[in-house]
C-alpha cells in the first residue's frame, strides 16, 4: 500500500520481464503468450507466470502465492470435488441433487482459481470445457426428455426410456440430474466466474468485430488483455484516491 513497497515491486517485476521480451509495452506480449499456450504443455506454470508478472507490472503488486492457501487448497480440493460428486450422484437417496452438486463442483474451481491465480486457471480450464459442460448438459436433458417422445410417449416419460435391466424411472431421473442439471449449473457458474473476473470488454469488440480470424478464441485474447489492463488502471487510480 505504501509507495516504497510499490516502487520496489515495480522494479522487481520490471527486471523480471524486461529480458523476456523488450517490446512488452503494447499488445505484443499477449500474442507471445498465446503462442506459448499452444506450444508449452503446462500452461499454468511457465506461461501464465510471465503473463502474471506482466499484469503485476501494471498493478504495482506482485502476485503472491500464499504458503497457506495453496497447500490447503491442494488438500481440500479433492475432498470437496468428491463431495460434490456424491451430492450429485446420491441425490435420490439423500438431500441434494444436480443443482447443489454442480454448484459445489464449480466452487472447487473457484477455490483453485483463488489459490493459483485466475489467469492460470483460465488457461488450464479451456473455454471449450466450460461451454461443453453447459451446452452438453442442456442437450442431454432435452435428449432424455425427447427419447420417450420419439417412442410415442410424453416428454420426460421415464418408464418408456430404453434402459435394460435397471429401473428406467429411477435411472432416468438420475440421468437427468447427473448429465443434465449438474453440468449446466457447474458450467454456467464457472463461466460467470471467469466472465466477472475478466470484466466488461470496454473496447466494444465483443461480437463480430473481433472475429477476423477463423478462430475466435485466439483472436479474442488481445482485446481481453487490453480491456483488463485499462480497467485495472482505472481501478488503481480509484483506489489511490
Amino acid at each position: 500500500m505504501s509507495d516504497a513497497v510499490d516502487d520496489t515491486d515495480m522494479a522487481d517485476t520490471a527486471t523480471d520481464t524486461r529480458p523476456d521480451d523488450p517490446s512488452d509495452a503494447s499488445g505484443g506480449a499477449s500474442s507471445d503468450d498465446q503462442g506459448d499456450t499452444e506450444s508449452d504443455l503446462p500452461p499454468h506454470r511457465a506461461v501464465s507466470r510471465s503473463r502474471r508478472l506482466d499484469s503485476e507490472e501494471r498493478q504495482g503488486t506482485p502476485y503472491t502465492e500464499s504458503q497457506v492457501i495453496m497447500p490447503t487448497v491442494k488438500v481440500v480440493t479433492p475432498f470437496a470435488f468428491t463431495y460434490g460428486l456424491f451430492i450429485t450422484f446420491h441425490g435420490s437417496g439423500s438431500p441434494g441433487g444436480g443443482f447443489q452438486g454442480g454448484a459445489i463442483m464449480a466452487a472447487v474451481v473457484f477455490m483453485i482459481a483463488f489459490a493459483f491465480g485466475i489467469e492460470s486457471t483460465r488457461d488450464w480450464l479451456a473455454n471449450t470445457v466450460v461451454v461443453a459442460l453447459a451446452v452438453g448438459g442442456a442437450l442431454a436433458f432435452a435428449g432424455i426428455g425427447l427419447v420417450p417422445v420419439a417412442l410415442g410417449g410424453a416428454f420426460l416419460q421415464y418408464d418408456l426410456l430404453p434402459i435394460p435391466i435397471l429401473d428406467p424411472v429411477k435411472y432416468g431421473m438420475e440421468g437427468v440430474e447427473i448429465v443434465g442439471i449438474a453440468p449446466i449449473v457447474s458450467g454456467v457458474l464457472m463461466g460467470l466466474f471467469f466472465l466477472l473476473a475478466s470484466g466488461f470488454d470496454s473496447d466494444g469488440s465483443g461480437f463480430g468485430s473481433g472475429s477476423l480470424d477463423e478462430d475466435g478464441s485466439i483472436d479474442e485474447s488481445e482485446p481481453i488483455d487490453e480491456g483488463s489492463s485499462l480497467e485495472e488502471d482505472a481501478a488503481d487510480a480509484g483506489g489511490d484516491r
Partner: peptide, 25 residues
Amino acid sequence: TFGEAVVVFAGGIAALIVLHREVFA
C-alpha cells in the same frame, strides 16, 4: 425443471452478451 435448467443456461448467455464477450474462459 427443464425450463429452470434452460433459464440457468440462458443466464450464462445473457452474461456473455452484457459483458461483450464471446468466450467464457
